[in-house]
């Protein structure tokens, strides 16, 4: 069956309430679809600003948020309907790491206790020597060791070390997919590269699939193979990262790429002007393309109808511009 080795996200829509009682709803995610082949190791980047729905999508894949419409299939199983042992199996297959490593660990709990819990509860290993071996092995992969970690509390580590530790913890279950939600945005430049190189190693040596969520397009290009750009709950562009960077097809992608600051003072005066984002909610409620409000090419049809996906030279784009503004 072709579903066997795919993670399929099928037109997922998630509604959130707003207003005083939260009775009025807006679409935090609007029919987002995505397919990931589990046989091909890669780093898939999910890019967008704050409030673009990238974290919501990640949480849906994790199974902690349930979509109103649509479903997520992992090897043919609907992950929001899993129970008992299959639910535990899915926990092993997909592991997350989070943005702020200091908040991911309880400050009053020793760091190594998370490792023992994960190994015994999720992996179900009871033999003491094997537990130690598994923990040490995964810590060594990120450049640490059990001796350095055992008995210590989170504040005794630097941010970079803690982020390595949370990657090592995720590796214990030998997952197929690692969901990384802004893993380096809280870290300093010199430590950032170390973590990104680990992500690359995971892909190359352990054949893992990493979904890397970020708003930082320079680190995205450094690690990524393909990219999905999100704006206000819709997926606006998806394709191989080098193609998208060379020639962004969607106006939002090019705006996003243009606002990346480069570490080079001589480029300072060459950045084009940006239009600040206005009220978020208004944009979520636009029936057509959510970017219409800020788009320099917007025409009437953009406000009323959401454009379909169009394949432009191997890149999927959702923009009326490429359809000459008509169906």
């Amino acid at each position: 069956m072709e579903n066997e080795n795919m993670l399929k996200i099928e037109s997922v829509t998630k509604l959130y309430g707003y207003g005083i009682l939260g009775l009025k709803k807006f679409k935090a995610l609007d029919s987002v679809s995505m397919n990931v082949n589990l046989e091909r190791p890669k780093i898939a980047v999910l890019a967008g600003e704050t409030g673009s729905g990238k974290t919501t999508l990640l949480r849906i894949i994790m199974g902690i948020v349930k979509p109103e419409i649509g479903r997520v299939l992992y090897r043919g199983y609907d992950i929001h309907k899993l129970k008992g042992s299959t639910a535990r199996w899915y926990r092993k297959e997909v592991q997350p790491i989070f943005q702020d490593p200091y908040e991911a660990f309880n400050p009053l709990r020793r760091v190594d206790s998370y490792f023992y819990d994960t190994v015994t509860n999720i992996c179900g290993i009871k033999d003491k020597d094997e537990i130690m071996y598994r923990i040490d092995e995964s810590l060594r992969f990120v450049g640490l060791s059990l001796d350095r970690v055992s008995g210590k509390y989170p504040h005794e580590f630097s941010g970079g070390e803690l982020q390595r530790i949370s990657i090592a913890r995720a590796l214990l279950t030998t997952p197929r997919i690692l969901l990384a939600d802004e893993p380096v945005s809280m870290l300093d430049a010199t430590l950032r590269v170390g973590i990104l190189n680990i992500l690359k190693d995971l892909k190359e040596k352990l054949n893992m699939i990493i979904i890397y969520v970020t708003h930082d397009l320079s680190t995205a290009y450094y690690v990524g193979d393909d990219i999905s750009v999100m704006y206000r709950g819709t997926l606006v562009e998806h394709g191989p990262i080098s193609k998208v960077y060379q020639e962004p097809r969607h106006p939002y992608t090019s705006a996003l790429l243009n606002s990346v600051l480069e570490p080079d003072p001589s480029l300072r005066d060459k950045y084009p002007a940006v239009k600040p984002s206005s009220l978020e909610l208004k944009e979520f409620l636009i029936a057509g393309c959510r970017y219409a409000n800020r788009c320099p090419y917007a025409k009437e049809i953009c406000w009323t109808t959401l454009p379909p996906y169009i394949d432009v030279d191997g890149v999927n784009v959702r923009c009326w511009k490429h359809l000459d503004y008509k169906l």
Binding site: A189, T190, L191, R192, V193, G194, L196, N197, L217, S218, T219, Y221, Y222, Y245, L257, V260, E262, P263, D264
Partner: peptide, 15 residues
């Protein structure tokens, strides 16, 4: 040296 520039995939080393 550890700074990543947009559109650059060459391997960098952290400190």
């Amino acid at each position: 040296e550890s700074l990543i520039r947009k559109g650059d995939k060459s391997i960098r080393k952290g400190l």
